[in-house]
């Protein structure tokens, strides 16, 4: 049997997890017991109900600790990260100058009903994120940030007009998995227009993983904490390869 792992509290294999959730019941001994049984059914043993509080009429909030009984074989886990070398601002600009010999065009937007521009702004705005300059600052990149609530049609139209090399799509805060539908809609539109291959299409947002992005038909996906130079590195590396 491979490399079995389970959560770590302060001793290897103790399986300690912390969990908080709300049950639609009035607080009391019965509610606490219900929370314990519920956790047991989630395969958590030795449950401690650390905190139980009625946060609204008929709704009780729990903080619990327990020991997870499930282990997994770490060797069997498969996941990918965007595999590219990461360069800094200066390296990226000189790579574009030397190897691509023209400006790189990038268009970005937050699509669908999401009004949050935090994600796309972090990557594209001059200022950038976490001390890492945004794409607008790169002299060798023409960056167009369309902002939020952009329709897929508008985004594609702009990408065609600007002769974009890459399309960046962000989804920050959405309800009930709307981000999946929005991401899918863009790819479907590109495929219907038979122009999917013309662009690098990159997804971003706190609920995005590279695997999810690839499953949805994107070239790459970047999650929370991504800085602009990582995205730029990926774009430039792909363009140089071409």
């Amino acid at each position: 049997m491979g490399n079995l792992i389970k959560p770590y509290g302060d001793t290897i294999d103790d399986g300690i997890v912390q969990l908080s959730f709300t049950l639609p019941v009035t607080n009391g001994a019965k509610a606490k017991k219900a929370a314990e049984i519920y956790a047991n059914n989630l395969k958590i043993e030795d449950v401690t109900i650390a905190h139980a509080e009625e946060i609204a009429e008929g709704f009780t909030y729990f903080v619990i600790f327990g020991k997870a009984s499930v282990s997994i074989d770490y060797d069997s886990v498969k996941a990918s990260e965007v595999s590219t070398e990461f360069y800094d601002y200066y390296e990226i600009n000189s790579l574009i100058k030397e190897k691509i010999n023209r400006k790189v065009n990038v268009v970005g937007a937050s699509i669908g009903t999401d009004a949050h521009t935090v994600g796309i702004d972090a990557i594209m705005n001059m200022k950038g994120y976490d001390g890492d300059y945004g794409l607008e600052r790169y002299p060798e990149i023409n960056a167009t940030n369309l902002g939020s609530q952009v329709t897929c049609e508008e985004l594609v139209e702009s990408a065609l007009k600007n002769g974009s090399d890459a399309i960046l799509v962000s989804q920050t805060v959405t309800q009930k998995d709307a981000h999946i539908r929005n991401f899918t809609e863009l790819i479907e539109l590109l495929e219907a227009e038979k122009i999917r291959k013309q662009f690098l299409v990159i997804a971003g947002g706190p609920r995005i993983t590279n695997d999810l992005a690839i499953e949805l038909g994107y070239d790459a996906g970047f999650g929370a904490g991504t800085v602009p130079s990582q995205v730029a590195s990926y774009i430039v590396t792909c363009l140089v390869k071409e």
Partner: peptide, 11 residues
């Protein structure tokens, strides 16, 4: 940064 608030988030 994650989702629209849940009841417990407001609490």
């Amino acid at each position: 940064a994650i989702h629209t608030p849940l009841m417990q988030d407001r609490f």
